[in-house]
Simulated scan of single mutants.
Amino acid sequence: MSTTTPETKTVLVIGATGKQGRAFIRSLLFPSANSTPSSPTTTTYPKSENWHILAVTRDASAPPARALLEEAKSHNAASKVTLVEASLNTPSTLRAVFESHPNIYSVFVVLAYPGLGAPVTSQREKEQGTMIADLAVEFGVKLFVYSSTIPIGPDANDGIDESRKQKREVEHYIEDLGKKNPNWKWIVIRPGFFYENLEGVFGAIGTTMYRDGLKRDTTIAMVASEDLGRVVAGLLQNPEPYINKFLCVTSGPVTMREVLNAHVRATGKPMPAVPGFVGWILLKINKGAKDLVKEAEINHANRISGKLPTFEEEVERAKSVCELQTYEQWKRALVSGEAGGDGELARRGSTDGKRMSTSSWNNLSLMKLLAGRS
């Protein structure tokens, strides 16, 4: 009796060592590391393919890259992850990756966030995103998945953060490129604010800024990074219902008060925060922090006024891929020690091997933050 070997599909992951990239790789190659008994069940699909990850990194010897390989090794998946060196600021190096691996099935793109309030002197993020999309078309990639952000408003120029604006421009470019190349398939995911961003020292600062800076009824769309990974893995396993569509990946908009109450229910303790006067000072002197809160208000107003008419549809579309944890579900798993993936890193208070107190939240620097510079 003959048997057939499942087809191997290669996925190029740009941003492989970041929060989203790691969560996706875990969900695709060793999903048990990105799930917990307490979390909702992910939709499962027949295992008809063998997956291989090409993880793009600027330096294959850097600790985050080595940590990715070690994690794969611990799940007996080391042969399924290959580190490839390339710099998005040097397009020829990424082109060389495509040339060396001519049968890439899918590309998942997460571009590095320049930092909260960081001055943007060029269109670098737009240039990188459009360059990657062009290469994907040129080399016959079957499925292109781009991680953007939930829009502040209906227009590309809505919002304040330059990175957010450039992501919208990349979205439009992908749509236009798809129209010119009908056989090219794309999906854009729009992640919400990650629960993990409310952990550690910077999370305490963010909690205070949102708690005191937002109106009581203002809602923020949030999600667990591990759930984002499950969504993208699900899209690759069953892409057809989502081709050429947008997905807002969030368990649903919630007020900061609802998050604070959920934290108490999950842990029995108040959510860590810095003294109120610290948040007040930051919102007075730090433009990046002020703009973050202002954008949350604008987004909330546009959602409830109907100026983002496809938001709910895009949320439900993401939830049809897999169930998404509420903050309370995620936090309960974290407290019980069941959380996997980035949830486990948050529980231990570290990220990429660094303590949260010395790490960053949206590339923040504590000293610069307190000095009025992000």
Rank of each mutant, 00 (worst) to 15 (best):
M1H: 03
M1K: 10
M1V: 10
S2P: 13
P6C: 05
P6K: 06
T10A: 02
I14N: 05
T17K: 05
F24S: 00
F24L: 09
I25S: 04
P31Y: 08
A33G: 14
T36E: 14
T36D: 15
P37C: 05
P37M: 07
T43K: 13
T43P: 05
P46C: 00
N50R: 15
L54C: 09
L54V: 08
L54F: 13
A55W: 10
P64W: 02
A65Q: 05
R66G: 02
R66L: 12
E70R: 12
A72K: 08
K73D: 10
S79R: 10
K80W: 07
T82M: 05
E85N: 05
S92W: 04
A96W: 03
V97W: 11
F98E: 13
I104E: 02
Y105R: 11
V110L: 07
G115E: 06
V120C: 11
T121H: 08
R124E: 12
Q128C: 00
D134W: 01
V137I: 13
V141L: 06
K142F: 03
K142T: 13
F144P: 07
Y146L: 08
N157A: 09
D158V: 04
G159V: 04
K165H: 14
K165Q: 10
R168I: 00
E169P: 02
V170S: 01
E171N: 09
E171L: 04
E171F: 02
H172C: 03
Y173H: 07
E175I: 09
D176S: 15
L177C: 06
K179R: 11
K179P: 02
W184N: 03
G192L: 00
L198W: 12
A204K: 14
A204R: 14
G206I: 07
M209E: 11
G213I: 07
K215E: 15
R216W: 01
R216A: 13
T218L: 00
T219G: 12
A221M: 00
M222S: 07
A224T: 06
S225L: 03
E226L: 03
D227T: 05
L228T: 11
V231G: 02
L236A: 04
P239N: 06
E240L: 05
P241Y: 11
P241S: 12
N244F: 03
F246G: 07
T250P: 05
M256S: 02
R257W: 01
R257S: 13
L260K: 09
N261S: 08
N261M: 08
V264P: 02
V264K: 15
R265I: 03
A266T: 11
G268N: 10
G268H: 14
V274S: 02
P275Q: 10
G276M: 08
V278G: 00
K287S: 15
A289W: 06
K290I: 00
V293Q: 04
E295K: 00
N299A: 14
H300F: 13
N302G: 04
N302H: 13
S305D: 15
G306D: 11
T310I: 06
E312L: 06
L324A: 03
Q325D: 03
Y327M: 11
E328R: 07
Q329G: 08
W330Y: 13
W330D: 13
W330F: 12
K331S: 04
K331Q: 13
V335L: 12
G343D: 08
G343W: 01
G343T: 07
E344T: 04
G353C: 05
G353R: 10
T358R: 10
S359Q: 07
W361D: 08
N363A: 09
L369Q: 08
A371L: 15
A371D: 13
G372T: 07
